[in-house]
Simulated assay, not measured.
Amino acid sequence: MRITLTGATGFLGQRLVQRLSADGHSLQLLTRKPLTGLPAQVESFLWDPPRVEAPAEALQDSDAIIHLAGAPVNQRWTEEAKRVLRSSRIDTTRSLVHSLSTMARRPQVLLSASAIGFYGERGDEILREDSSAGSGFLASLCEDWEKQAGLARSLGMRVRCLRTGIVLGKEGGALPSLLPAFRFGLGGKLGSGEQWMSWIHIEDWITAVLHLLDPSLTTSGPVNLTTPNPVRNADFTATLGRVLHRPALLSVPVFALRLLLGEMSSVLVASQRVLPDASLEFRYPALEPALRALLQ
Rank of each mutant, 00 (worst) to 15 (best):
L12E: 02
L12R: 05
Q14N: 06
Q14E: 03
R15G: 15
R15I: 12
V17S: 05
Q18F: 02
L20C: 08
L20W: 08
S21W: 02
S21P: 07
S21N: 10
G24W: 01
G24I: 02
H25I: 03
S26T: 10
L27A: 01
L27Y: 07
Q28V: 10
Q28M: 10
L29G: 02
L29T: 02
L29A: 01
L30E: 06
R32P: 12
K33W: 00
P34S: 15
P34L: 09
T36M: 01
G37K: 03
L38I: 09
P39L: 00
P39K: 00
P39H: 03
Q41H: 02
V42F: 08
V42H: 07
V42L: 11
S44Y: 04
F45I: 15
W47R: 09
W47N: 10
D48E: 13
P49Y: 02
P49L: 02
P50D: 13
P50T: 11
R51H: 12
V52A: 09
E53C: 13
A54M: 07
A54K: 01
A54R: 04
P55V: 13
E57Q: 15
A58I: 09
A58N: 09
Q60V: 00
D61K: 14
D61Q: 13
H67M: 14
G70K: 06
P72N: 04
P72R: 07
P72K: 04
V73I: 11
N74I: 10
Q75C: 03
Q75G: 11
W77D: 12
T78F: 14
E79V: 01
E80C: 01
R86L: 07
S87G: 05
D91N: 11
T93I: 08
R94A: 15
V97K: 15
H98Q: 12
L100H: 08
L100R: 04
S101C: 07
S101D: 04
S101F: 04
S101V: 05
T102L: 15
T102C: 10
M103H: 01
R105Q: 03
R106Y: 05
R106S: 13
L110N: 00
L110F: 04
I116R: 02
I116H: 03
I116N: 10
G117F: 08
F118H: 05
Y119E: 09
G120H: 07
E121A: 15
E121V: 06
R122S: 12
R122V: 03
G123H: 11
G123A: 01
E125M: 11
I126L: 03
I126A: 02
L127R: 13
R128D: 05
D130E: 13
D130I: 04
S132F: 06
A133P: 13
G134M: 01
S135R: 11
S135C: 06
S135P: 10
F137M: 04
